[in-house]
C-alpha cells in the first residue's frame, strides 16, 4: 500500500453496515455480483468458501464477519470485490459497491482512536470528501490471518 500520504488516491468506495469504506483501485481486479459459493470446510468462519471466477477458483471473505459485524443475508446490492495483493487473490463480500473516487493525498488523516466498530488496525486512514467520510482499508491487514 502506498505510504506516501501526499500522492492522490483513486479508490473504490463500498458500503458495509452503514459506513463507507475504500480500497485503492490498483488492488481491485473486478466487482462481481453474488454467485454460488462452495463452502470450504475447516477454514476461518469469515471465509465463505470459493467461487468460480472465470475459471479461477477464488476464495471469498465476508468482510462483515471479518470485522466482527453481525452477518446479514445477501441482497440485490451485495457485491464481491475481487482484490489482489501480491500473489493472493480473494473476493470480499460487501453490502454494496458505490463508485470510484479520487482522494487528494492531503485529505487523508490517520485513523482516529475509535472509528465505527472495527478495529483501527485494519484502517490505513480516513478521508473526508465533500460530505462523505471514507474509511481507507489496509488490505494487507485485512487479508492477514
Amino acid at each position: 500500500m502506498n505510504t506516501n500520504v501526499q500522492t492522490d488516491w483513486k479508490v473504490i468506495a463500498f458500503r458495509l453496515k452503514e459506513e463507507e469504506y475504500a480500497l485503492p483501485v490498483q488492488h481491485v481486479r473486478s466487482i462481481e455480483k453474488m454467485q454460488p459459493i462452495t463452502r470450504v470446510p475447516g477454514t476461518a468462519h469469515y471465509v465463505k468458501g470459493v467461487i468460480n471466477l472465470r475459471g479461477v477458483v477464488t476464495p471469498i471473505i465476508d468482510l462483515r464477519e471479518r470485522f466482527g459485524f453481525a452477518p446479514e443475508p445477501y441482497g440485490e446490492q451485495t457485491r464481491m470485490i475481487i482484490v489482489t495483493l501480491g500473489d493472493v487473490e480473494v473476493g470480499l463480500i460487501v453490502d454494496a459497491a458505490n463508485d470510484v473516487i479520487d482522494i487528494p493525498g492531503a485529505s487523508i488523516e490517520p485513523p482516529p482512536e475509535a472509528i465505527g466498530a472495527i478495529e483501527a488496525s485494519y484502517i490505513y486512514g480516513v478521508a473526508k470528501i465533500e460530505k462523505r467520510l471514507l474509511i481507507l482499508l489496509d488490505l494487507a491487514k485485512v487479508l492477514g490471518q
Partner: peptide
C-alpha cells in the same frame, strides 16, 4: 485447480474443480 494462495492448506482437501 488450486484453492489459491490465500487458502494454502486445508485439511483433507487437495484442490478444487469446476
Amino acid at each position: 485447480k488450486s484453492l489459491g494462495n490465500y487458502l494454502s492448506s486445508v485439511f483433507a482437501i487437495s484442490g478444487a474443480t469446476i
